[in-house]
Amino acid sequence: MTTYTKPLPAISSLNRPYWEALKRHELKLQRCTECGKVWYPPAPFCPACWSDAVTWQRLSGRGRVNSWVVFHQAYFPSFQDDLPYNVAEVELEEGPRLLTNLVGVDLAEIRIGMPVEVVFEDVTPEITLAKFRPVEQHSR
């Protein structure tokens, strides 16, 4: 296995369950059992109603592209070989938006509103990233 040289996430007391779920290939975010809100980034209590009634809920993994960009310049050397590469903001069915990379799609085909679903990319033994691919290409 080649060494993964791209930046890795900083694991904190708040986001640890998110990253542990991804490692099991599950997309989970916090949900408030009082007001029903689902949010990102992880918080010590519900940012909508300040309730402590917070659970980690498994999400559908489906969403749509809210906006996206294409990098033509590498700010980290480890992204140099990927140029030009996309970064998308995906709006999950449950509401929150995540930054991610779209996989399995040509840059010319990306559209705002495009339906996508999560794919799990194991980049190191400890870290799995949530990336997204168009629903049509790989569903069923």
Binding site: V69, A74, Y75, F76, V87, L129
Partner: peptide, 19 residues
């Protein structure tokens, strides 16, 4: 979010411009 190569202030502005 450097994990996905989303770096530099201009990237967020590009997201706004695209939308």
């Amino acid at each position: 979010d450097p994990v996905f190569g989303m770096t530099s202030p201009g990237a967020g502005a590009a997201l706004v411009a695209r939308k």
